[in-house]
């Protein structure tokens, strides 16, 4: 009996076990009151036609989606998320491969290096990049010192600077699931591929990449969701010239006080992130079946 229970637990559940609703209720009700209800209010307010919230109508929605400027803001936000995913992937995969090949001592050190930025406040990480990317900053001093450029580059308030900063800020989110799945990967498959004469590149693209794809998808989901909503990094490093959905939401709700319009932008951000997550999940299923 105990053996059966243990076997069942291994596969995820005990047969006949039911949800204990008395224990689930406190958090469930808290979520209903403080999570689901606010979103319902948000949706409701988006159907006011004017900033004073006197008249109902779809005006806020049509104004938002009818204007090329706001459509570009949606596109730029999506693009920023995609760039952040690509940049973190480019650096996280090599780092995860090195991690896998390292001794336990080095692995502990690497985990520490990865966790350190994750546990350092996002505001501080953003601040660090101001110190680095500024005209008098580390990067410009180094480039001038190496004779690579004579005039300081302006990286603050550019999309490139923002993507560089977001790469560091979001990289731990990509690395942690990737490291987990790399550690679970069967080394025999890699060895077999090499023994059969495949080059290291071929082994990476045909064996390692498909095997670690679920970890990448988990990481990419977190990076995408986080980069598209990184208000402080976007507003401080991107500056006023680069407008993304979060800064638009903040401006419309706290500066302009057009709540219906802010609600539309906010729901758009929600849908954008959900669409990104669903696209990544679909990619995962597609990769598994093909």
């Amino acid at each position: 009996m105990a053996g059966m229970a243990a076997a069942a637990a291994g596969s995820g559940g005990v047969p006949g076990a039911r949800v204990d609703w008395r224990l689930a209720a406190p958090l469930g009700l808290t979520y209903l009151a403080f999570f689901a209800a606010p979103f319902a209010i948000l949706l409701g307010i988006s159907f006011y036609a004017d900033a004073e919230q006197t008249r109902l109508g779809l005006d806020s929605w049509t104004k938002f989606y009818g204007d090329a400027f706001y459509r570009k803001v949606i596109f730029d936000t999506l693009k920023l998320g995609v760039f952040a995913v690509l940049a973190t992937t480019l650096l996280a995969y090599p780092l995860a491969l090195v991690f896998r090949a390292s001794s336990p001592r080095v692995q502990r050190l690497l985990i520490f290096i990865i966790l350190m930025p994750l546990l350092t406040s996002v505001v501080i990480r953003t601040f660090a990049w101001i110190v680095i990317l500024a005209r008098e900053g580390v990067l410009n001093q180094t480039l001038i010192g190496l004779g690579l450029t004579s005039t300081p580059l302006n990286l603050l308030q550019t999309e490139l600077g923002l993507v560089i900063a977001l790469t560091q800020i979001e990289m731990p989110l990509m690395l942690l699931p990737l490291l987990t799945i790399m550690n679970q990967m069967d080394q025999n498959l890699v060895d077999a591929s090499r023994a059969l004469g495949a080059s290291k590149w071929r082994t990476f693209f045909r064996v390692i990449l498909p095997l670690t794809l679920p970890g990448w998808i988990a990481g990419a989901t977190l990076v995408f969701a986080s980069a598209t909503t990184a208000f402080i990094s976007q507003s401080v490093i991107g500056g006023a010239r680069l407008v993304y959905l979060p800064s638009l939401i903040w401006q419309q709700s706290m500066v302009v006080y057009n709540w219906p319009f802010a609600a539309v932008a906010s729901l758009t951000l929600l849908f954008t992130v959900l669409a990104g997550i669903m696209a990544l999940g679909w990619l995962g299923r597609f990769a598994r079946t093909s």
């Binding site: 403080f34 999570f35 606010p38 979103f39 209010i41 948000l42 307010i45 989901t221 977190l222 969701a225 598209t228 909503t229 208000f231 979060p246 939401i249 709700s253 709540w259 802010a262 609600a263 906010s266 729901l267 951000l269 929600l270 992130v273 959900l274 997550i277």
Partner: peptide, 13 residues
């Protein structure tokens, strides 16, 4: 995974 920024505005409203 849901954008907490959307939630922040929703909570304020």
């Amino acid at each position: 995974v849901l954008p907490t920024l959307s939630y922040g505005l929703a909570a304020l409203m």
